[in-house]
Computed example of a mutant assay.
Amino acid sequence: MKVLDQQEEEFSARQGEVLDAVLSLLVEGREALTMSAVARRASCSKETLYKWFGDRDGLLTATVRWQASKVRAGNWDRQKLDASSLEESLRAFWANWLGVIASRTSIALNRVAVSHAATAKSNLGAIVLANGRFAIGERLKPLLEAGREAGLLEFDDAEEAFRTYFGLVGRDLQIRLLLGDGVELTEAERTREAARATKQFFALHGARASQP
Rank of each mutant, 00 (worst) to 15 (best):
R192D: 05
L124V: 04
I101S: 13
Q79M: 13
L204K: 13
D157P: 02
V128E: 12
A73P: 03
A130L: 14
L60W: 08
R190I: 00
T48P: 01
K70Y: 07
E47S: 15
D157T: 08
P212H: 04
W66A: 09
T61M: 12
A135Q: 10
T105S: 04
Q7F: 05
I136E: 04
N131E: 04
T48F: 09
P212L: 06
G16A: 08
C44A: 11
L178A: 15
R111S: 01
E189Q: 15
S84I: 05
V100H: 00
A113S: 11
A21M: 00
A13M: 07
W97I: 00
M1Y: 11
R65V: 06
A83P: 00
A42C: 13
D55K: 08
A32G: 02
M1V: 11
R176W: 02
S115C: 01
E149A: 10
A83T: 11
E9L: 00
E17G: 06
E10Y: 01
I101F: 00
I101R: 01
E187P: 14
A118E: 06
A32K: 09
W76Q: 04
E187T: 08
L173T: 14
G58F: 12
S210K: 10
G147Q: 02
R40A: 13
A195W: 03
L179H: 11
N96T: 03
V3S: 03
S84D: 12
V169R: 15
E187G: 03
T34H: 06
L90T: 04
E17P: 02
T119S: 12
R139V: 04
A150H: 01
L129S: 12
T164N: 14
T61V: 14
R148E: 15
V169L: 10
V71Q: 09
A68V: 08
D156M: 13
D82N: 13
Q7E: 14
